[in-house]
Design a protein around this nucleic acid. Structure first.
Lengths: 224, 224
DNA sequence: CGAGAACGATACGGACCGTTTCATTCGCGG
DNA sequence: CCGCGAATGAAACGGTCCGTATCGTTCTCG
């Protein structure tokens, strides 16, 4: 991944990008996103701060590039075994949030980007799109094998997986262990409701559960 | 909710707490967590900044109190209908993340608290515990009615619910609508894997919720 | 009406910001 | 091996916000 967020203004290219991004990760991992300052990164990298400002327009852009280099988004190998592939996907996501400060940096970064739509879009593209497409491919294989329903909502699956993982790391502090991974996998393997939105009636196959009268509800705002 | 994070040092109590917390919410909602400064809140509240520093030890504490006042964590009423109660719980959570900047503030705050264990613990206690216990009570009613499996993992259910909602708001930007709510409800109503970890089941009693990391017996206590 | 608490204004040193200037070093092509 | 342009690092700038301290004023309650 090559400096997606660098402004890349001058001609020759940055000489010290590796040290700078490494130092950024170091500070991030030790001090957290909030405590990261450009001057601290410059000092840790043994670099003048003007060098950093020459190549990255903001702290956000720098951190995004630093995180992008360690964010795993590889293809899920075709293992011929849907359960194993799902587990692989979940493990990859858990890996991405292994370090507590790193894990916190991503949401913090996203939060800080809410008022920078341009960077936010690039952030989502860079971090989410590729990984989601790779996992979606594995999910589609599972559908083809008949292990998953053909109208599986692959976006919702990923929101549930990543959401649960991030939420545990950041909010409840619960462990991200093998047990969680296994449960998240099973949740998808055995959950009829994780279906794609259907325009009309259900497509020929699945019969709805009797406990599920399919109420077409409208959103309500509950009283205070 | 009464100023959980205020240091409450002086005697008489703050006179201008309402204006200050209101201004904090205003700034938070308009500018976001990162852009919130004590001086900006003071100005917006028409208050000297020394007044804020007199009652709150840090930006984090102030924001925590400001958010606590609008964070919904009420009991789920016994509607005699498990599906309706689950929907109620999900809607309450979605409500809590209605405003984008507010929604982002909570994770950003948690991220900023990672290096302040004392405040982090109070944050989790204040924001998560009560709400989780209330939702857990509703889930237990569902179990008693036979609509949910006896060994439902109420903690995992809530991590999945809240996690998916927060993740959508913050990371993917996907809508938090009635469709999502309905899917999250169905996910629980029809998902065998959402079971409790194999331990001694304690039927009837209140299930202890694990909100603290507490990895293997290490219990963190806070000095009064 | 008086005491004490809460308040606001103001000023302070310090950290970082983001920018500019300028002399120095690097590294590639000739 | 040399030179030239690109990249660099040091320093200094005005600016914002931090968190603290001081001090005179205003509120509140007994």
């Amino acid at each position: 991944m090559a400096l997606v967020f660098s402004s890349g203004s001058p001609a020759g290219g940055p000489r010290s990008a590796p040290q700078i991004l490494g130092a950024a990760r170091e500070v991030l991992s030790a001090q957290g996103y909030a405590a990261l300052t450009i001057e601290a990164v410059a000092a840790a990298a043994g670099v003048g701060k003007s060098t950093i400002y020459r190549w990255w327009p903001s702290k956000e852009a720098l951190v995004a590039d630093a995180l992008a280099e360690i964010f795993r988004a590889e293809e899920i190998p075709d293992l011929g075994d849907t359960r194993a592939e799902l587990r692989h996907a979940v493990d990859m996501t858990i890996d991405n949030y292994a370090n507590e400060d790193m894990a916190a940096s991503l949401p913090a970064l996203a939060a800080g980007l809410l008022h920078h739509p341009e960077l936010l879009a690039r952030f989502r593209e860079s971090f989410l799109s590729r990984k989601r497409e790779n996992i979606a491919a594995a999910l589609r294989r599972g559908v083809r094998r008949g292990d998953l329903p053909d109208d599986l909502d692959t976006d919702l699956v990923q929101d549930v997986w990543a959401g649960t993982i991030v939420y545990r790391r950041l909010m409840t502090g619960a462990p991200l262990d093998a047990d969680l991974a296994e449960r998240l996998v099973r949740l998808v393997l055995h959950s009829p409701p994780l279906r794609a939105p259907r325009e009309e009636a259900a497509p020929g196959g699945a019969s709805p559960s009797r406990l599920d009268p399919a109420p077409e509800g409208k959103v309500r705002r509950s009283p205070g």
